[in-house]
Design a protein around this nucleic acid. Sequence first.
RNA 1: GUGCCUAUGGUGUAAUGGUCAACACAGGAGUUUGUGGAGCUCCUGAUACGGGUUCGAUUCCCGUUAGGCACCCCA
Length: 442
Amino acid sequence: MPKNFKSQKKEKIVKTKEKKVLFQSPKGMHDIFLPEDQCLWEKIRETAKKTSDFYGYSRIDAPILEFAEIFEKSAGEASDIVEKQMFVLKTRGGDRLALRPEGTAGIMRAYFQRGLSSLPQPLKLFYFGPMFRHEAPQAGRYRQFHQIGFEILGGENDPVYDAQVILTTVRLIEEVKIKNLTVQINNIGCCHCRPAYRKKLQAYYHARQNKICKDCRRRLSVNPLRLLDCKNEDCEEIKKEAPIMIDFFCAGCRGHFKGVLEYLDELGLSYALNPYLVRGLDYYNGTVFEIFGDESKNALASGGRYDYLAEALKARKSSLPAVGSSIGVERVIELMKSRGFSCAVSASPKVFLIQMGEPAKKKAIRLIEEFRKAGVKIGESLGKDSLGNQLKIADRKNVEIALIFGQREVFEENIIIRDMKNGVQETVPLNKAVEEVKKRLK
RNA sequence: GUGCCUAUGGUGUAAUGGUCAACACAGGAGUUUGUGGAGCUCCUGAUACGGGUUCGAUUCCCGUUAGGCACCCCA
């Protein structure tokens, strides 16, 4: 006997162990399943919809997979996102596809492929969906994360749109009760003025390359603008004296930047000029910005202009005015949580249906439909059969009313309505059940 | 990708180089079968994975995986 028992137990253990190994989520990818979490997500989805709706953005959902080339051509082959963070896969047909690491490139692709340029311009679009980057997960950083993005495509290259994108982004975040946002803003020039600046910057750092850190030496040749956001102490010193873009603006960029700031002033949106703010993606030009919550080191949102993206994708020969932003949803939710954002988890039912015996069960499942039609939420425990058990469950669900429906009631075509607070019961005709319950709930 | 820290039931926590890994919550069953809340009884369920040291490892060591933090970079 004991032998038998032992061997049975052993088998069981082996099975569970196998299961455990199998069922792990991939690194940096999470389940969002707790009711409180879902509620926050729901809240932010709603807010995104409301905000985008008000400012006139239409929703677009591009596929999660795109040709890898689209990202290589847009974000830049040397950018970290493409170089080491992209999930790339090959299809059986030999296509190289990538899980999108960001949203803008796909939107731009859709804009041309679907002829969206024939709609009234500029076209305002917004999206909400998962993005994928293969990097080391840590706080506010995951391999699958979600972004809400706003894009204004086509039309005129008018600073008012830059301001409006920033405004939309700020308002959306404020709507979920995150205040004291800081908007950091800069302008990184255009194809006319940036090359000259880049040269000057390169020359400046070149002359001091013995004093800068290893990474910066690499940046010097690969991506000189990124020299500006090195946080190394020694580099900070050198950075202070480095030439800044603002002194190299062409007339167009100077005017545009000034325009954006004036609109922000007009809106009463406070911002901080940050001459060292540059972005990691190649497609940015002109206005760039990042939005921070007061206690977060990670940006909650960021964006800028990308007038040259259309050209880079070879979708057209000249530039297409475009400006956009994207919000890191997980980062916003993290802040909502730490601020104790109160969030009504979907109302639990106030009525609970108890059924006993097969005939009652059959009728019960239909009775629930009557309540659905009447818009009354009703709980049930159709898998159980004892009255005591079901009452216990009803009690734990904190319902106001329990409906008791057994063989006797089926036969007599009535149902018992029990007030869970005082235990008072009343028998009513079955066809009046919904009506009676409604009356009592008031 | 690099460095540092961590890993015990579903959750939160104990404990130990040596009998059966403890407790709380959650979950399940029951408390005489058509009447809930308390109480009581019982049950389910864990040392992440793989090696090594050892008579013996959950404990010590190494690797893997996952998580956290920082860097890189970024939302």
